[in-house]
Amino acid sequence: MELFIILTLFFMLVVTAIAILMMRHLFAVVMLSGVFSLLSALLFVTLDAVDVAFTEAAVGAGISTVLMLGTMALTSRNEKMPRDFSPIPLLVVIATGSVLIYGTLDMPIFGSPTSPALSHLATAYLTQSPHDIGVPNVVTAILASYRGYDTLGETVVVFTACVGVLILIGGLARRRRKDEEGTN
């Protein structure tokens, strides 16, 4: 049953992705990327990752759609007619894909309780965190406490990206120039 749900969601994801590839109207492309995010949020729920699904739904369907629409309003609405079909990108993609699939052959079977990803650290977190931290949501416990350094780094990355955006299009330089002209 679970496999059936995953396959259905996957089918919808592929259709959305191919539609993104084919569409030339950028408004439709941006909206479809929002649809893609919502579908992947559904898939995360079936894979037991409720926190991730929550984030993906809020970020992917909410903020990123707004930002892309904003960019579109500042640039253009339509993609130019695509160049003549060239086989090189397709070959590159197929080669990369087959290498990746070759890589998965060694992986443990999906959902296997003995997979190496589950055996050491994950079990430790699941058994220790009730005593160490006592927070019901293990994801929060790992995020903020066990891996607090990671999260501090991620927060700094988000802050840095914001600084970058403000430098590029924030208009701070222009405002300062105007101030200097005003004082002179």
Partner: peptide
């Protein structure tokens, strides 16, 4: 829970 933590922050980044 470990992949969830890593991916959660990765989405926001």
């Amino acid at each position: 829970p470990l992949p969830h933590v890593l991916i959660l922050t990765a989405i926001v980044v």
